[in-house]
Write a protein that binds this DNA or RNA. Structure first.
Length: 254
DNA sequence: ATGTCGCGTGTGACGCGA
């Protein structure tokens, strides 16, 4: 089985790339972030025509997530149960007996921002809910744009990022807290090229200079850990004429 | 270091978020 995550930075703009990508990468499930559209605008027909099922949850202008799958997702949940949120950031469903969760974690903007307070609260809410999800679903995958670079090796220039969001001790403690629930970072189960990133700023030739961060992650539950055979970042998609600032990440489970 | 995108407003430059 293959599962993937991709922050598309507007599904309106990126839909043709998503359709092409699915044709080239026939995954069992793909979660999208930053669809940036209300539910009435969601391109269900086009995704259906590509041979996929889809569940979606969006809002105007910002955020928005979707769960695309070969077989229909069941027991679908939108946002974190028990955490009141007016932003569309999470979708979960069961696909082929595996609980699949797609999340667009808050950015946080700056450490002294109200948005950072929200990010911390969202992460607290996620951890509490995820603990219950893991009790109910031994086989679980949570993936998405975490907006956290877990370690310095996930940052192109750790010194330049000191004092910024995505790399702070608080955020990294939250990432570790998720792992402590019984999850593992699938990408780090394998030897990977140094300076492997999943996001590059559109500005300042970020991609061309490989000035990026690894902030898009796939965490798998301990019950699945032994079956993971590969995890890769599809950097090629960042070379498209009109790319998202994020590349897809794909995990293969035997 | 903030040079790029995408969106919404409201017709076109600008503010916002990333």
């Amino acid at each position: 089985m293959k599962f993937a995550t991709w922050n598309v930075n507007s599904l309106t703009v990126r839909l043709p790339q998503v359709i092409d990508w699915l044709a080239a990468n026939p995954v069992d499930a793909l979660v999208l972030q930053e669809t940036k559209m209300t539910d009435d605008k969601f391109p269900t027909m086009e995704i259906g025509a590509a041979g996929y099922q889809v569940q979606w949850f969006g809002q105007k202008t910002y955020n928005g997530v979707a769960l695309i799958s070969k077989t229909p997702a069941t027991d679908v949940v939108k946002n974190i149960t028990g955490f009141a949120d007016d932003q569309a950031r999470l979708i979960a469903g069961t696909v082929n007996g595996i609980r699949v969760i797609g999340g667009y974690f808050p950015n946080g903007q700056a450490l002294d921002s109200d948005k950072f307070v929200y990010k911390m609260a969202w992460l607290d809410g996620l951890r509490a809910w995820l603990a219950n999800e893991l009790k109910a679903h031994e086989k679980l995958v949570i993936m998405g744009d975490f907006n956290i670079a877990p370690e310095d090796r996930d940052v192109h220039d750790p010194a330049a990022w000191e004092g910024m969001t995505h790399v702070s001790p608080q955020e990294r403690a939250h990432f570790q807290g998720l792992l402590d629930l019984g999850l593992v970072d699938a990408y780090r189960l394998f030897e990977q090229p140094p300076k492997s990133f999943s996001w590059w700023d559109y500005r300042m030739l970020g991609f061309q200079k490989n000035k990026g961060l690894r902030i898009d992650h796939i965490l798998v539950s301990n019950a699945l850990k032994g079956s993971v055979t590969a995890c890769v970042i599809d950097r090629q998609m960042r070379k498209n004429p009109q790319p998202s600032d994020h590349a897809p990440v794909i995990v293969t489970i035997a």
